[in-house]
Nucleic acid binder design. Structure first.
Lengths: 300, 300
DNA sequence: TCCATATATTTGTCCTAGACATAATTGACA
DNA sequence: TGTCAATTATGTCTAGGACAAATATATGGA
């Protein structure tokens, strides 16, 4: 059997690249790329190479470049631009580059062991702030530059997840206050930020109720009532468009009872100014601070 | 401040309900529902009630009903239909209803404890086949009928995940063969099936490399090469359209080297007939069988 | 009466082409 | 050099039409 050519329909390209169908069509008209083949029904068929090129473009867009400048560039030029993206690896303490090397050489279990060891040595708080957070940023940047493949990033996330989940299980104090509901809104699929938040809150002795990702807004409200929580924590990664974050947060705030606090954290909120009635969290330490303040206000 | 009306734009409705924008527009024309309000720009604004109603419709659709019969029905009628959906609870051994009750009363930690206990008592294999699998089906059906809210289902998934992950960590034998890469394709977001598969394969002493969910096809190929795996396992939940499963599987098979086996499992493949070069797995036990056969063929 | 095959209907997703608010960039001016 | 206004770029929405694949219904034969 001859190896048939690998081609994606427009829905497949949207899934694989994260670029919407409308956007793909309008790029074709405006920038002359991608220009897919057509099947007998005149429907677009994107060959593998174009999808690969779109992935490079998506990365550059996510790191702040503008379509006009880069959609239409050939693969070598795109790679050239990717290499020029900022690289903090040098500034960072050398110990982090050890992790990066483990990721690049696909040594999953060694990576997991190294992370567990660091956790034991540093303690959770320092582990999160000095190791995981900067490592996340490093990995994110390396991925942007194309030094890490998607599958390597996936493997990395999986190991962090395992280490953190393990640690979190060991610090459960189910009866404490405040009661905190944790989840993300539909569209936000990243678990890592949520897990880091859970670890931080767990340390403070908060009673975390983890709902996982992508809970519809109205379900968050119902869950908040059913579990009688004091605080709802939503996590946003930097992958989500700011616009979407803002409007979703407003909807959530309106839908939740006033007495329930709404906190938003993660890299995705750094770009936000201010949202009425929502507490925006910067670094993880803000969460601990928030819990402290909440306790002061509820001493009765 | 007056509580402003909660309304979603068409993209928000797509995220919240999983119904595509094109579909929403064409339903409006064909069935007269949903008919959203419009903003000053003539863009659709869906009020909360319509979104809620769409969620009910989506559930009925997912359980096999046809749009013509149900899009356009009012909420009470929809609920009536939901209640008529099949209910296996009665047939199942009574012990499972205990779990359901824990879910409905939102006792997360009690549920987790009960599950861990069952795992210890039954052993992994029986735990998966006699408890988790039927429980998943029960929960799925109860959710379809509207007896469980989304957030309750989320909470349930989270507890299962924790119990399974805990168990999996304890059975790592990293140097064994065959080497198995595990992930889902873009569009498939369900982790549970993947975790259950990992537990089963881990029991057989296979060397599982877990990539998490939603790995682009080309990345799967790269990962398979980098990790020199013998088998790639993809998991499909019943939430994914059959059409999408079939075309994705074909693409993946074409993209992977011939010497790498491709296995597909999960509720989503039950509806498939046959895909060239792909081994379709029914129950979890098939995986164990597959590993056994693989070992027989590779005794050199 | 039951099953297989042919015909009709239903349904999701794709198409083109155009519009416009918001974000980012450029230019003018202090 | 910094600030504000004008301009351009960009994603996402609109409408209305088309069609293949999936499903339902009718038909014929054992």
């Amino acid at each position: 059997m001859e190896k048939s050519k690998i081609e994606f329909d427009i829905a497949g390209v949207e899934r694989e690249t994260g670029i919407g169908k409308d956007t793909l069509r309008v790029w074709e008209k405006r920038y002359g790329f991608p220009v897919p083949e057509r099947d007998e029904r005149e429907e677009r068929l994107y060959p593998q190479e174009q999808v690969e090129r779109l992935r490079l473009i998506k990365r550059l867009l996510d790191s702040g470049m503008r379509p006009l400048k880069i959609v239409g560039l050939e693969v070598p030029e795109l790679n050239g631009l990717l290499r020029k993206l900022p690289d903090d690896t040098a500034q960072q303490s050398a110990d982090l580059s050890g992790y990066i090397n483990l990721i690049k050489s696909h040594q999953a279990s060694a990576l997991r062991v190294a992370l567990s060891r660091a956790l034991l040595k540093q303690g959770m708080e320092e582990f999160l702030s000095k190791t995981i957070s900067p490592l996340n940023r490093l990995v994110g940047e390396a991925w942007m530059r194309g030094e890490l493949r998607v599958f390597e990033e996936h493997l990395y996330s999986e190991q962090i997840t395992q280490v953190l989940r393990d640690a979190i299980t060991s610090l459960h104090h189910p009866s404490d206050t405040p009661r905190v509901l944790m989840t993300t809104l539909p569209g936000e699929e990243h678990t890592l930020g949520l897990l880091m938040a859970e670890a931080t809150l767990g340390l403070c002795g908060a009673n975390c109720i983890m709902l996982g990702i992508q809970t519809p807004i109205q379900e968050i409200v119902l869950a908040a009532l059913a579990h009688q929580v004091d605080i709802v924590v939503l996590s946003f990664s930097s992958a989500i468009p700011v616009l979407q974050v803002k409007s979703s947060l407003k909807l959530a705030r309106d839908a939740l009872p006033k007495k329930v606090s709404l906190w938003a954290g993660g890299a995705g909120v750094a770009r936000l100014r201010n949202v009425e009635g929502v507490r925006l969290m910067g670094p993880l330490a803000d969460l601990a601070l928030g819990i402290e303040e909440w306790r002061k206000e509820h001493v009765n």
